[in-house]
Design a protein around this nucleic acid. Sequence first.
DNA 1: CGGCAGTATTCTACAATACTGCCGGTGCCGTAGT
Length: 500
Amino acid sequence: MMLEYELKTHFGYNQFKMGQKEIVEALLNGKNVLAMLPTGTGKSLCYQLPAYLMEGVVVVVTPLLSLMQDQVEQMMSRGEKRVVAINSFLDRETRGRVFGRLHTYKFIYISPEMLMNEFVVTKLKKLVISLFVVDEAHCISQWGYDFRPDYLKLGDVRESLGSPQTIALTATADQEVRSDIVRTLKLDKWEEFVSSVDRPNIKMVVDYVYDTKEKLDRLLEWVSFLQGPGIIYFSSKKLAEEVAVILRDSGVPRAMAYHGGLDQESRILIQQQFIKGQLDVICATSAFGMGINKENVRFVIHFHMPLQLESYLQEIGRAGRDGENSISILLYSPHDEQLPYQLAEGELPTEYQISWLFRHFGDQLLYEWEEMEESIQQMGGFTETSWRLTRDFLRSLTNSMDLIIEKERFIEYVNTRKKHKRKKIVEILNWIQSKECKRKGVLSYFGEVSHGTVDDCCHVCGIVYDRYKTKCSDEVEFTPFQWKEYLRGLLTKSGTSYEK
DNA sequence: CGGCAGTATTCTACAATACTGCCGGTGCCGTAGT
């Protein structure tokens, strides 16, 4: 009753969406919360509403500056002026002003990296923090160990802020990731709200092809067959660009590539054009997605397999936000898993690189190596990510440490991480190659039981492909599984099996 | 693993083939600031 009134006053809604009220109540009862809610179900309301009923400021940790910006603008347009984003976009002058009147804000959005800054933390300590929010909390587990290590230190920051009441929000996290989040943030008592990851309106297809050439042919067939708009995911920026060109040259003029190598301006432009319906197809890398709210995406195609099932689920989850039927297609050809393996390994230094480092620099690693950083990275052939991990390790060394022992410890850590990454790839690979219902496979990975299948579920259970056929063009006839016969013929002849 | 670019090779000179080595995805921050 009471809460509905507040909901109406602050947000203008008459009632809560599924799951929101319970979370709000738990927060108002002083509990820490880990909430897993599907995207588009109003995650931000879960902390914004309680914020108004609590004394003090809300600190929101967000992974992307663009998300931060979106949130702030959205709140401003709703009339909430006491909101600020603390990030590297702030020029010196604004920064000074912001810190000068920090206590006047109700919502402070901030990146994990900024929270590592002592000055920032000192300032935050002086405030009464009613709620500490970690948005997209799966980033802790997915990025924290190597890509953005500051995510892993959020728990320490939280502690130094006096362990304020906390809510971690995410859309996709299996049991392991959820306990990772809780452990990292050092939540002692917490309540979990986990809703199903199943999206019955998104149909799942794995399309097994013979090689890359056939994969490209299949991709073009699918794109001309399927109703747009759609997203095609690649693990290569170059290929994403190339396919966008091919599509534009072959009857899909409104296709563009999107990846992290583009400058900020083009990224925003392409994203906006897609959202506004001025583009039909986006050829993207994993850079595309977080925070993109487009209702009517009709298909998601994976040209390359993602590095883990969580990513897959998150990426196909960008389809069918409007609840309408949508289709996801993963193209798999034998040995495709090699690319994920390579990418995953590139995040970590090899044992050889670590040994080389110790052999060549010995005691220097305790003191004067930082001046030679660049050349060490170059000479040792460290990737940007693997070097950062190595560098953080070197920085943690002190004079009193035994280098041999520390080296072994580091190698062991790296091996554990490597094993974990390989396991993730094996899991998605097993799912790809399994002959079971695809939905069932994904759900059981997330610890859920499939609630029975409908007629239109996945390529194993059966799909009415014509439902996803493009409506605005008179395409020639398309037989979805004709290629299978062709493939079978090929394989029988060569005697190889693509399922091994 | 597969694709690609650059170089080497090849039965005399242009153009095709072979060999070698490398690459492949995600994003904060940076200074000084009360």
